[in-house]
């Protein structure tokens, strides 16, 4: 469900920058510390974009590796998993250099959105 929130926020950002044109490709940069599951994000992106200028747009996700710097000894390392204590001097308080990204890098847009297709008809749930 985390990915649903992220997908909705991606759509929000994309629509703000698409200038009313149809979007065919969205390029994302996702840091590995963000705990985003790529397949799950793609699935939800497909759902939240229905009936919008992004409907049918492809989602490209670039995974950005984590890199930390120790505040005490300036040692830099790539953590294998969630380990934020400096492996050299043992200090806490590391700075995240990369890995926290959650960024819309760029879009590919086509012509103007003529008319949004109607959203699929909602299922009508009735008590039997």
């Amino acid at each position: 469900m985390h990915e649903l929130s992220v997908a909705a926020a991606v759509l929000d950002t994309v629509v703000r920058h698409a200038g009313g044109r149809r979007v065919t490709l969205v390029r994302l940069r996702v840091g590995e510390l963000r705990q985003v599951v790529p397949d799950s994000l793609e699935l939800y992106f497909g759902l939240v974009t229905r009936g919008t200028a992004c409907e049918g747009a492809r989602l490209e996700q670039e995974l950005v590796a984590a890199r930390l710097r120790c505040g005490a000894c300036t040692h830099e390392w790539r953590p294998g998993g969630p380990a934020f204590r400096c492996p050299e001097c043992g200090a806490g308080g590391a700075t995240v250099l990369t890995g926290d990204e959650l960024e819309v890098h760029s879009l590919v847009v086509g012509g103007p959105v003529a008319a949004c297709p109607e959203p699929a008809e909602e299922a009508q749930w009735t008590r039997s």
């Binding site: 992220v6 926020a9 991606v10 929000d12 950002t13 994309v14 703000r16 920058h17 698409a18 200038g19 044109r21 065919t24 994302l28 959650l102 960024e103 819309v104 890098h105 760029s106 879009l107 590919v108 847009v109 086509g110 012509g111």
Partner: peptide, 16 residues
């Protein structure tokens, strides 16, 4: 026809 729009924006910038 297709055009690349550079965005470079954090996804949660509106929330922030």
């Amino acid at each position: 026809m297709d055009e690349v729009v550079n965005v470079h924006r954090h996804v949660l910038e509106h929330n922030d």
